[in-house]
Design a protein around this nucleic acid. Structure first.
Lengths: 236, 236
DNA sequence: ATTATTAGGTGAGTAATACTTACTCAATAA
DNA sequence: TTATTGAGTAAGTATTACTCACCTAATAAT
């Protein structure tokens, strides 16, 4: 028998991955043919199917590599930042920056992968997306524990709002190859998500219809609550 | 010559649209073949290309019909609601409810359409998505004018956060055919988006690093600001 | 030394499928 | 009566993701 050799992944495989990466910089995944990938890689079409289950599996392997770079860089950027909100801001900033710069990565993620059930079985999702989410959740929990972030909101919901906003903000720019302004978008998103959209100065003139249930549970400190309610008439 | 007849769209066309709708209830768009659509409709494959530019064009026509129903129902639901925040809450609730109930509509929108450049040229986008966005923006502007919503946040950003959160919250459920709980998700999203995640009780112990610029611009009323700053040490 | 095994790679096929093209048929306006 | 046109058909065709049988060389076991 033969031992698994020196375990460096075979040159053909590497060439295939590199070829798809290169082609993705030029054109859309669906308009890249397996024949084209093989030709660019300098191998035969059949070899693709020795190393990958199908064309999309190959795509997710490319995404995995790119996502690992993303996470590595993000963690580096995050180290040394103090405070949960500052960390979240940094994550939002960095994600937008990276989405703007690494178009291949972002296109795969936003356009090809996230809509496809099998992506969620891939390593790119199981390892990277989950880690990304976990990092955010951990920061939120840290923020809740140290009092920076409200206790009465589920961390998963906050994470959803953050990720959803980032992706929604980037999608058109990614599709139409437009520039993204990471800093200004990050500031906009942060001020919205951190502070909320409601103007606390607002004095309601109409009688309440009971829809605004969540607002009453917000202020925990009775002392401030009195002060604030006097000013805000916040349906206490 | 012949006048454009009684302008009722031809039976073949209607049958094709209905066939695709029906098939989409059973399976994913990409695994539906044009042959299958034709067979289900009881016409020949060629006829599809008499009425539609291609398979996706047909898909967007189906989406258009479904989106028109969505908007019609939403506007009805919205009438009689007072206050911008209440209206936004209603839109979030209704969208989640509809996304949950109308899976075909939602799958087309979230999985097929929004990632594809040509969708943005379609009537479904140009008429319906734009109207949906405009309704939200108008409500936000109304809220800003009457003081319910903060002046210093761009309406388009708020809209982005709302739409992004909704879509991000639904995507996995849509892909894996899981139930959505419109009411509870709506409440969660609203309290997050309306009030923000920051706990105003928080008293900073570390020295500021200048990242929290947006927070300083929030409170317009100098009187409250003094009071609040005393409590929050909010880097004013 | 010989043989068996296997990883790495080839190349010719194949079924599926989106889309095309040339055509028919009937209704009707001129 | 005829030309025109809308509605629909039938038979392709090119493309393309994927398969399968095969080759080759290195090496482990005998």
């Amino acid at each position: 028998m033969r031992p698994p050799k020196n375990k460096v992944s075979p040159p053909g495989r590497i060439k295939i991955v590199r070829a798809l990466k290169q082609l993705l910089a030029q054109k859309d995944f669906n308009s890249i043919t397996t024949a084209e990938i093989a030709k660019t890689a300098g191998v035969t079409e059949g070899l693709i199917y020795k190393y990958f289950n199908d064309k999309r599996d190959l795509l997710y392997k490319v995404l995995l590599e790119l996502f690992e770079m993303f996470l590595q860089k993000m963690k580096k950027d995050l180290s040394g930042i103090e405070g949960a909100l500052n960390k979240l801001r940094k994550i939002i900033q960095f994600s937008l920056y990276w989405y703007d710069r690494q178009r291949v990565f972002t296109r795969i993620l936003l356009i090809e992968a996230r809509n496809s059930p099998d992506f969620y079985k891939s390593d790119a999702y199981q390892k990277c997306v989950r880690e990304y989410s976990k990092i955010i959740i951990d920061i939120i929990n840290e923020g809740i524990e140290n009092g920076e972030i409200q206790k009465n909101i589920k961390p998963s919901v906050i994470r959803q709002v953050i990720q959803g906003s980032i992706e929604h903000a980037c999608l058109p720019a990614i599709i139409f190859d437009r520039k993204i302004s990471p800093k200004s978008i990050a500031d906009d998103l942060c001020s919205t998500i951190f502070m909320g959209i409601k103007d606390d100065q607002f004095i309601k003139s109409q009688s309440s219809d009971g829809k605004e249930k969540s607002s009453s549970s917000r202020r925990a400190n009775p002392e401030e609550r009195v002060v604030v309610n006097l000013r805000r008439n916040d349906k206490g």
